[in-house]
Computed example of a mutant assay.
Amino acid sequence: MLLHRSESLTFFTPDHFSNIDIPFFDTGISAGFPSPAEDFKQQRLSLDRELIKNKEATFFARVSGQSMIGAGLDDNDLLVIDRSINPTHNKIAVCFLDGEFTVKRLKMSDGELWLQPENPSYQPIKITKENNFVIWGIVTNVIKRV
């Protein structure tokens, strides 16, 4: 369900899988030589249990833009955001800044707060008292298409 769309993020509420478990092979996936098929041990995996720790406080947002490519957040990636996690130095956060949502790394030092992009083409943003600013949630996972 679409919640909000801004220039840099589009927010969705999670549609939980309602206890649907997906087959999971706990063998490790080799990027070298394949392992024999008889080594597979099939288990069940719930993406809800893996990606969502607090259902009531978790949202998804789709990234638009390139400011966080150095952190592995690319255009159209889907972010898993938990609003119950305390924001701390070096966490990647979704923030509401002066009327727009953005995703940046939090840099806290000497009583100052900066929003640090992970792309040298973008400048860090110093947060001041003049800003309309809220840390909306912390990014816990990123889902990519291949």
Rank of each mutant, 00 (worst) to 15 (best):
M1A: 11
L3W: 02
H4L: 10
H4G: 00
H4Y: 13
R5E: 15
R5A: 13
R5T: 13
S8A: 08
L9R: 05
T10L: 12
T13P: 01
P14E: 08
H16S: 02
H16A: 02
I22D: 07
I22K: 11
I22R: 13
I22Y: 15
P23F: 11
P23A: 09
F24I: 01
F25Y: 15
D26K: 14
G28H: 08
G28C: 10
G28K: 06
S30V: 03
A31T: 12
F33M: 09
P34W: 08
P34V: 03
A37T: 10
E38G: 01
F40G: 02
K41V: 14
K41P: 00
Q43R: 15
R44E: 13
R44V: 05
S46V: 05
D48I: 09
D48G: 05
D48T: 07
R49W: 08
R49Q: 15
E50G: 07
E50H: 14
L51H: 12
I52C: 04
I52S: 03
K53D: 07
K53F: 06
K53S: 11
N54R: 11
N54Q: 09
A57M: 04
A57R: 06
A57T: 08
A57L: 02
F60L: 06
A61S: 13
A61K: 05
R62E: 09
R62K: 14
V63I: 15
S64C: 06
G65S: 08
Q66S: 13
M68W: 09
M68Y: 11
I69T: 09
G70K: 02
A71T: 01
A71N: 04
G72M: 06
L73P: 03
D74P: 00
D75S: 12
D75V: 05
N76I: 01
D77E: 02
D77Q: 03
L79A: 09
I81R: 06
I81P: 02
D82S: 03
D82H: 04
D82A: 01
S84T: 04
I85R: 06
N86E: 14
P87W: 05
P87T: 01
H89T: 05
N90T: 11
K91N: 10
K91S: 12
I92K: 01
I92L: 05
A93R: 04
A93G: 07
A93S: 14
A93Y: 07
V94R: 04
F96N: 06
D98C: 01
G99Y: 07
G99F: 02
E100V: 01
F101V: 03
F101E: 07
T102Q: 04
R105M: 12
L106Q: 11
L106S: 07
L106W: 07
K107P: 00
M108S: 08
S109T: 13
D110V: 05
L113E: 05
W114Y: 10
W114L: 07
Q116T: 09
P120W: 13
P120H: 12
Q123I: 01
P124A: 02
P124I: 00
I125C: 03
K126E: 13
T128C: 07
K129N: 14
E130L: 02
E130D: 14
N131W: 06
N132V: 03
N132L: 07
N132A: 11
F133S: 04
F133L: 00
I135L: 11
I135P: 04
W136F: 14
G137N: 05
I138S: 06
V139G: 09
N141Q: 08
I143M: 15
I143P: 10
K144D: 03
R145S: 14
V146F: 15
V146Y: 15
